[in-house]
Design a protein around this nucleic acid. Sequence first.
DNA 1: CACTTTAGCTTACAACTGTTCGCTCATTCT
DNA 2: AGAATGAGCGAACAGTTGTAAGCTAAAGTG
Lengths: 202, 202
Amino acid sequence: MSRAEQKERTRRAIINAAFSQLSADKSFASLSLREVAREAGIAPTSFYRHFADMDELGLTLVDEAGLMLRQLMRQARQRIEKNGSVIRTSIETFMEFVTGNSNVFRLLLRERSGTSAAFRGAVAREIQHFVAELAEYLRKETTCPDELARAQAEAMVILVFHAGADALDAPPEQYNYLTSRTITQLRWLTHGAAGSGRKFKT
Amino acid sequence: MSRAEQKERTRRAIINAAFSQLSADKSFASLSLREVAREAGIAPTSFYRHFADMDELGLTLVDEAGLMLRQLMRQARQRIEKNGSVIRTSIETFMEFVTGNSNVFRLLLRERSGTSAAFRGAVAREIQHFVAELAEYLRKETTCPDELARAQAEAMVILVFHAGADALDAPPEQYNYLTSRTITQLRWLTHGAAGSGRKFKT
DNA sequence: CACTTTAGCTTACAACTGTTCGCTCATTCT
DNA sequence: AGAATGAGCGAACAGTTGTAAGCTAAAGTG
């Protein structure tokens, strides 16, 4: 096996070990280098051959999580073309992601308000991708000035994110309620924004 | 000095020490019993005379933070009576709280998605007080069915909370933008909800 | 083939952590 | 006055943590 190949392999082992140790009651901050190394099957000191410290690993995890989110968006767009309902499809896709990759979502959720400014920034950037894309969509579909389209997109993303957070602590039989509640909230936003738009324009 | 009086005093010293050690880059989870005891001016072992463990202290902190929030709401109501604008006054009061007691707000913000189910529950309960009160107000002022009033109130509280979270990482010259953005978002919600109400009723 | 590079290892250390135990001694109770 | 209570203390323990130093052996390079 090639040398670089092997290195990449244990690098992934470290990343996977870290992800697998995240859970409802274990945040990234409470992971220990030694435990991660143990699960990755390497000596603690070998960790440093791949990451300068735990923070660097953490930023890598956030990046990967962001990647998964963007894949999710692409998937959602495909579904929308077949299904039609933009809001419902988007939220349902997101909720599936949250419940299916709860550890990944929890990472973003927590580090968004965590103790590391670098982490907070990284998460904020990932979320901004969502917002920017949604804002662009709103600008096309509606007659909304740029600045307001962004504010609207931000509100929507916040509400959807929060619904995901609620789902983490809710029993599965409440998922339907959470999604329909969020759909209602987003509809209010779009109607309200459209109304204000008319108010100011016409 | 009475015995109970003295006990209460060092209990407060512990609580204050804990609050003072919370900061942008130190969460409750990363506090150590020994450090808190040190700042409170007691031996590590004396801590146990007041709290069974750090979790008990943490729940106490969340309770206190919730108390401050409720005082804040009362204060906001008084301001509204004099000022008139409900939404603007509420948000401005909240933003003042966030910037003036950032450690307290950070505690709620983080433990809302933290690693302890008990903490998450405690924070959720505190926030529900906000939501319930706001929902009741909406039921009186508007012609909104109960269920929808609650969903509307929840959306509003989430957006305001999030604006506070943004403020923590934003330079002070952006506070005005954050508040006005949030005002716009809440107006959209109320208009949208009113519109949908009419749509379903009339 | 000899030479360099480097992922991974073992050992070791110093700095913490939470918690138990037994003691002191001022306040409180009888 | 005498006994009981209980807040606070110091010493000690077992566990964990991150990380430095130096070695081994296999892969890559000329």
